[in-house]
């Protein structure tokens, strides 16, 4: 049954305006980095490889727009049911509330991977004029910035980009779980999205408190650029733990909510 529900949730996902807007927005970043004429004047470097475009697109979107898009899409996934009034209709079927919310959690948790996979493929496609060979410089996502530390092979560059995109998507999963939790608590998608965005903005500001920093979701959003395995492990455990905590609270709360 869970598989059927996941299948249905994916079908609904593509109908969400928030998803369509996210795809358009995430297509803009690679286009800018691949074709904007003023990069040298503003940033002081030239884009010389197709592998730099997805790297730069990721760096420029991870700090701000991507977490917000993920929060809004996740909140919409549950919120659209309230808006259309279909939440009771679905729960009248022989499925448990946990199964139903689990399918939402799984699909919204997979959405960062889908969105970033789309961004990566689109970025590599629009960056074809720069070529896919080895180059002197860096991908921007793992040490050395775009200037790099010498020549980098095509394989290494692609590996760095894939690794960065996977880790970035993973770091966004707790945000999608948090947005679903807020939507469960507040009852509507708009409230859920608003609360999630507000919490993210507050978290960005709270990183000035050193002891609190490691507990903030926003502190782990740069995990994709983390070259040291030790710190990577800590961040990964923190990400997975917070995602699990948000998901469990959402499930427990949803089990006891009057529809």
């Amino acid at each position: 049954m869970l598989l059927t529900l996941i299948q249905i949730e994916f079908m609904k996902l593509w109908r969400l305006n928030a998803v369509r807007i996210s795809l358009v927005v995430m297509a803009i970043f690679p286009l800018i980095w691949a074709h904007a004429p003023g990069i040298i004047e503003k940033y002081g470097f030239y884009v010389i490889s197709a592998y730099q475009v997805p790297g730069l697109a990721l760096i420029s979107s991870m700090d701000f727009i991507l977490p917000f898009l993920i929060a809004i899409v996740s909140a919409s996934l549950l919120g659209s049911e309230s808006r259309h009034g279909t939440l009771p209709t679905m729960l009248l079927k022989p499925i448990t509330r946990s199964q139903w919310l689990c399918s939402k959690l799984i699909v919204s948790g997979l959405f960062p991977f889908i969105l970033l996979a789309f961004t990566l493929i689109f970025a590599l496609l629009v960056a074809f004029p720069f070529g896919y060979g080895s180059f002197v410089g860096g991908t921007g996502v793992l040490g050395g910035d775009v200037v790099g530390v010498g020549e980098i092979s095509a394989g290494t560059a692609l590996f760095q980009i894939l690794r960065a995109y996977m880790l970035a998507a993973l770091s966004l999963v707790p945000i999608s779980c948090m947005a679903l939790l807020f939507t469960v608590l507040l009852g509507t998608g708009v409230s859920g999205a608003l609360a999630s965005v507000a919490v993210l903005i507050v978290m960005y500001s709270l990183d000035v408190i050193p002891w609190l920093e490691r507990f903030l979701l926003t502190s782990h959003l740069d995990i994709y650029a983390q070259p040291y395995l030790g710190r990577l492990g800590l961040s990964l455990s923190s990400i997975l733990l917070s995602a699990a905590v948000f998901a469990v609270i959402a499930l427990l709360r949803f089990e006891k909510t009057d529809i």
């Binding site: 109908r15 259309h84 009034g85 279909t86 009771p88 209709t89 009248l92 079927k93 022989p94 448990t96």
Partner: peptide
């Protein structure tokens, strides 16, 4: 909730469906 296999219900007027 498995007992709902034997239940047909509409709890809202008008009945809610996915409009798209």
């Amino acid at each position: 909730p498995k007992v709902k296999k034997h239940l047909g219900a509409v709890v809202e007027a008008p009945a809610a469906f996915y409009p798209y």
